[in-house]
Structures are given as C-alpha cells and as structure tokens.
Nucleic acid binder design. Structure first.
Lengths: 167, 167
DNA sequence: TCAAACTTTCAATAATTATTGAAAGTTTGT
DNA sequence: ACAAACTTTCAATAATTATTGAAAGTTTGA
C-alpha cells in the first residue's frame, strides 16, 4: 500500500465512522483529511480531494469550527482562507465526547429523571416503570460522567493506568 | 405526569436515543416498551402501542433477538409468540457495547493498523500519516478495550469505585 | 390433510438526511 | 467606489434509510 492508497483508505474509513459519534460523512472526512495534512488546506483543496461541492464543504467546515475542532488559519499575502484541525487525538476525543454528551446524552438523562420521578400510584406497572427508568438513569448518568471525566484527563497515563486496574 | 404520559415519553425518548448506539428508532422503542412491561408482549401488543406495521415489528424483533437482548417466551396454551427483554441494565449495556464494538469499532481499528503500518518512504507527508493514524489507532483501541472491560464487570461497584478514582 | 392462526419476507413507498450549484453576500486591493 | 476573489446560503435534488402491507410461508389442532 502506497501513500495515496493509505490516505484514501484512512479518509474514507474515518468518514464512515462518523455515524459513531453522530456527525455526517463529509464532516468526518474533512476532519480526517486535515488531520493527516502537513499544512493547512483551503476550500478548493478539500473540494478536490474529497470530490464534494463548495456548498457542502463550506457548511461542514462551519460546523467543525463551531465544534472547535477546526480552526481558520490566515496565511499572509493569501486572500482565501485556510483550515487546520486539532492534531492531538486526546484533545479531539475530549471535544467530540463533550459535544455528544451535551447534544444527546444530557437531554435523555433529563427525561429519564422526570419519568422516574412520577408519583407512585401503587400499581405494579407504575412501580416497574419507576424502577426501570431509574436504573437506566443511573447507568446513563454514570456512563456519561465517566466518559467526560476520562476524556478530560489530558494525560494519557491516566487512561493507561485505569485500563491496567480493571484488566 | 401520569403513568401513560410517562410511558409514552420514555418510549419515544429512548427511541430517539437509538442512533446513539446505532440501532433504528423502531428497534429502540420496542426494546423500551418491553423494558418497562410487567409481562411479555405479543406482536399485536407492540404494533398497537407503537403504531407500527406488522412487518416492521417482525423485522425489528428479529434483530433484537439476534443481538440477544430480546427473547421469545412461550406461554402454554397460547398460539402466538410473546417477547421479553433483558431487564438488567448492566447486562443490556454489555450486549449493546459488545455489538457496537464488533460491528463498528473493530473494523476501524483494523484499517488504522493497516494504514499506520505502510512503509516509511522518508517524505514528510508519509511520516505525518503514519504518526497520526498510529495515534488514532492507539486511542481507539484503548477506548474500545476500556468500554468492553468496564461493561464486562457485572458488579456495579466497579463502575462506581472507578468513577470515584478519577473524580 | 386441511384450514385457521399466526409469522416472515420483500418490493414498493415514504420519510429522512445529505449534497449540489447557482445566486446572494462579503471582503480586499486599487 | 468598484470589481475581482472569495464564502455563504438555501431551494431543489439525490441518496439513503425506514416503513408498509400484502403475498408467501409456517405451525398447530382437529
């Protein structure tokens, strides 16, 4: 496998993993492309490499910037804008996890709390609903906390030592 | 909020969370419904509660059974089939994480390993590709390992004490 | 072995989500 | 103030994914 093959393989695989953290293919691919690029890229570069339209590129770059993963770079003497991505995987993971938690997990935890707090009218079905949603609430909240805490540890040794602990 | 409101809210919220673990809405809703039901339900019950078609119900039940989350229950004297879901949240989380890892994370880890193992031809761009995909490989693999290990600990105290550790 | 009771399959359709491309908007140098 | 160089917006369209419903399949009891 040569450089170009490896690059294409990486970009498309990382793109398809997008769903795993709730972003679309193009967005994930743009990030992947920037992630392995040795210099900032402009819109043309990205459009050409990924064969996507200008509008698509613009919209997805915007979202990546909103997330704080991609930043605009101004190159003196150049009119057009260039882009780079966060190069530290640890930091990348932090941002993604944080965003995911905020957008998707937190609202669910909130609903679970509400539902598990309804008045116990004494019927078996209500008891079951309360019991099960409470269990789900605890699990979800704990998992969310853990992910956030883990991912906020910037030093990699924490992850490694934890992993050893639970082996 | 009374029982029926709470139930509807829970089922639809849990359904929309489906994307988070890579299953579709109907599948997540069926599971949610069974999760708070005090007795096994048949296809009619599910169709009626969720207002979905017979075909949809059948296909999604099948997939839930393939995942090992839902099991068929035979009620003596009854012709039709009944279904229940795993009621332990811990076990539920285990199955979901395992499935997700197998279907989505493992293949990506494999590709990252391949890509990061290409020959270093000495160019800067190749070095960068290798370096970055290697970092991603390590992170992804570590995260995957952690999730699997954590989720395999059936006792809840492990999670709790770990959480304390990293607070 | 038949028919009633039930489940599965799958082509057609609907719903959702991503992408395009061209017009409108913005910025910059002269 | 203008025009060139660039970016953004968004309605239209395409691609993808989920859902339906009816026909085919299966099981069971008499």
């Amino acid at each position: 496998m040569n450089y170009d093959e490896a690059k294409t393989k990486f970009v498309s695989t990382w793109g398809s993993l997008g769903t795993l953290w709730g972003i679309n293919k193009a967005m994930a691919q743009i990030q992947a492309l920037l992630f392995i690029s040795i210099k900032p890229l402009c819109m043309e570069d990205i459009m050409e490499e990924l064969k996507i339209s200008r509008g698509n590129t613009s919209m997805n770059l915007r979202q990546l910037m909103d997330w704080g993963i991609v930043t605009k770079v101004i190159i003196p003497g150049e009119r057009k804008e260039y882009f780079t991505t966060e190069k530290e995987v640890q930091e990348l993971a932090r941002v993604i996890a944080k965003e995911r938690s905020r957008r998707e997990i937190k609202p669910v935890v909130k609903v679970l709390k509400e539902v598990s707090s309804i008045a116990d009218d004494g019927t078996e079905k209500t008891k079951e609903l309360i019991k099960q949603t409470k269990a789900l609430h605890d699990l979800t909240e704990t998992a969310d906390d853990m992910i956030n805490k883990l991912v906020n540890q910037k030093q990699n040794w924490v992850t490694k030592s934890l992993l050893k602990l639970i082996k």
